[in-house]
Design a protein around this nucleic acid. Structure first.
Length: 430
DNA sequence: TCTGGGGTCCTAGGACCC
DNA sequence: TCTGGGGTCCTAGGACCC
């Protein structure tokens, strides 16, 4: 099933989300901070114009930026996630095949469509997304994902495109011209080291990579880069997926609000991460067979003793029970933690995921344990329901305080306008 | 003083087996 | 002087992405 592919990408997504419910932020420089309010992870156009780089630590932000009216926001993933879902449902109403890619990007499959009419169709779609969600998007259309990515960037960069740009294959002169003036390091999938090696071998532009011999690329690099080269030449190398693929691993980790040495305190944080991981596991209908626990000190604090390590606990049988997963995580922590270190971050990874429906009974498992499992399933379903309807953290496994040293700092968080009753926007009539 | 979190895929190389 | 050869499986780590 081949056909044109479109990439829909929300412009400056996190900043745009902040503006949806606070219109006064339109035109103002808005920067969204990482977890713990550490550094800048998203910038509005105005912030980019101020010369503030991605990843700038909050304490390095220049005074001049604040004088220019810089508005800071803590990450508000509950809001971003909800708005992302709205964009997705809008897309699903207007495209035959939608494959979510990240919180702010989706691929659209247009197999069987006449490429000639697609630009207009996508302009209309872009307009609808904006009307229904308040979020501006750009759309790139091309025969392959790598080219669609390039088209998308062009659409974003040049307002004259009306936010939509379409590329063809190498036989199209306009496509060739764009590839020729695109440095190879700006191609999707080619970054830092590989870009340097390609340049040393004389491959400097996207066009040169598109025209390189795929077998040569494969022998010098890998199949990944070979695929990128083929895609640039207009041959799609991945299928569009009809349904959401499940994650193969679920990682949950956070830095602490401050460095922590106390075992009990870290244990509490880890319980929160393990529970959250288990919740996501159940949401995608999987079971895990192994829990990896990670614990690390602050690598930037060079004057302090360093310790970072991971340990993997194999579970007796695949499970999605918060209790079993938390228990395994705590076993892992007991092996990792050392007295006298001040830790900065801990987390869990749920590994070896399988689909819940494919669960097999263990050889040594007594058949009557089915009843116990059903009880556990019902309990987990109730726990998830309560946390969904009353907000995360309403029911927890073991103590997980809302105010604790391990909790994230988020001093500049906006309201969770669409997911919390008590934070809903108010309209006052007078 | 501060410097995020969550993913995927691929490859190299060791362990192990016949 | 050298001292099999091939295969599979698993894990760690690199590279990249958002």
């Amino acid at each position: 099933m081949k056909g044109p592919i479109a990439l829909v990408d929300c412009n400056n997504f996190y900043c745009a989300c902040e503006r949806v419910f606070e219109p006064r932020l339109h035109g103002a420089p808005v920067a969204v901070l990482s977890n713990n309010d550490g550094c800048v992870i998203a910038r509005s156009q105005e912030v980019k114009a101020l010369g503030i780089a991605m990843g700038t630590p909050i304490h390095h932000l220049p005074r001049a930026a604040f004088r220019a009216g810089l508005v800071l926001r803590s990450s508000n993933y509950e809001l971003y996630g909800d708005l992302s879902a709205r964009v997705l449902s809008t897309l699903r109403a207007h495209a035959p095949l939608v494959e979510p890619y990240s919180i702010d990007e989706s691929w659209l499959g247009f197999a069987g469509f006449d490429p000639a009419g697609l630009t207009d169709h996508c302009r209309a779609l872009r307009h609808t997304v904006h009307r229904w969600t308040g979020l501006p998007v750009s759309i790139g259309i091309a025969p392959s994902r790598t080219l669609a990515k390039l088209a998308n960037r062009y659409a974003k960069q040049y307002p004259v495109t009306g936010g939509v740009h379409q590329l063809g294959g190498l036989e199209d002169p306009a496509t060739r011209a764009l590839l020729e003036r695109t440095p190879v390091g700006e191609v999707w999938g080619i970054a830092g080291r590989i870009a340097i090696r390609l340049q040393q071998m004389g491959v400097r532009s996207a066009l040169e990579l598109a025209r390189a011999d795929p077998r040569w690329i494969r022998s010098r690099f890998s199949v990944v880069i070979e695929r990128t080269a083929r895609e640039l030449a207009g041959t799609p190398c991945t299928e569009m997926l009809d349904e959401c693929e499940s994650n193969r691993m679920i990682m949950t980790s956070r830095s602490f609000g401050q460095m922590i040495g106390d075992y009990r305190e870290i244990q509490e944080a880890l319980r929160a991460h393990a529970s959250r991981g288990a919740e996501r596991l159940r949401a995608q209908g999987s079971l895990t067979s192994a829990v990896m626990v990670m614990l690390q000190t602050n690598k930037h604090a060079r004057h302090l003793p360093q310790h970072r390590d991971t340990v993997t606990i194999a579970l007796p049988r695949p499970t999605d029970s918060s209790f079993e997963i938390v228990h395994a995580a705590q076993q892992g922590l007991a092996r990792l933690w050392r007295r006298g270190y001040r830790y900065q971050k801990c987390g869990t990874r749920l590994l070896d995921l399988i689909e819940r429906d494919h669960r097999q009974l263990g050889i040594f498992e007594p058949p009557q344990s089915d009843a116990g499992r059903q009880r556990s399933d019902a309990l987990m379903a109730t726990l998830d329901r309560l946390n969904r309807s009353h907000g995360r953290g309403t029911v927890t496994v073991g103590m997980q305080r809302r105010e604790a040293a391990w909790q994230l700092r988020s001093d500049y968080r906006s309201n969770r306008w669409t997911t919390r009753w008590e934070e809903m926007p108010e309209v006052r009539l007078r």
